[in-house]
Write a protein that binds this DNA or RNA. Sequence first.
DNA 1: ACTTGACCTCAAGCCGACTTGAAGTAGGAC
DNA 2: GTCCTACTTCAAGTCGGCTTGAGGTCAAGT
Lengths: 129, 129
Amino acid sequence: MGELGIGEVVRRSGVPASTLRYYEERGLIGSVGRRGLTRVFDQGVFQRLALISVGRAAGFTLDEIARMFAPDGRPQLDRALLTSKTDELDATIRRLTVMRDGLRHAAACPAPTHLECPKFRRLLERLTS
Amino acid sequence: MGELGIGEVVRRSGVPASTLRYYEERGLIGSVGRRGLTRVFDQGVFQRLALISVGRAAGFTLDEIARMFAPDGRPQLDRALLTSKTDELDATIRRLTVMRDGLRHAAACPAPTHLECPKFRRLLERLTS
DNA sequence: ACTTGACCTCAAGCCGACTTGAAGTAGGAC
DNA sequence: GTCCTACTTCAAGTCGGCTTGAGGTCAAGT
């Protein structure tokens, strides 16, 4: 069925083999096993890689991601961790949104330097507070 | 007026002195000058630090942040950079939002493991695509 | 005069996340 | 049987972003 060599995973995901090996070593992917020496992945690896990539973009460490999605964990603890991570993420999103608006404005604003623009300064204040 | 020693900046911002010195070395803060040996900052440093912190959370490198807010640059180029950064940021926000919703759902979902939950899988597909 | 405390410099170290390189193996094509 | 290609391991290197430590300066307090 959907069994894949590492090369195929590289081609389809764009993730380098060295990174895949590294992720396996860290316990993030690659549960299927070996055919002789060589690793065998299943289709699920692409989901996992997507999760990892987004998780990284969200500022989570590999350890945190591993803990979040490990199938071995105590689910109770996972849920709590998940909730707190969700809240963190929510805060991050809000701050990024403010930042994006600030940048968007700065790109269009006629003021000589951004720090002189009152609108920009107000956005900054929202960030500092 | 609002002149501050490094200790005061540390106390008010929570940013360690070593980091402040490092940021200065990298050209991100600290334009006011020295009183003898010791650095003198003005109130604006807090805005800058807020910008840096949010920028970092948005995944920008210190170099990129320095380039974005350097007062010395060609404004033309700055604006272009700003616009492209804004777009990047926008994409990041969208992905993080999907991720947040995924996590939120996962935290509440009764499915034994998250990957078995159809809702969660659909979110993942939105990420992979 | 001397200690204390806050500041300084500069070089080296550390952590996370990978990448690179050297050296080996396994299977198929010719 | 030997060459190619795709894989393997393991140790070391890299890069960004700081932190740590040793050793020095300077102003104020006692």
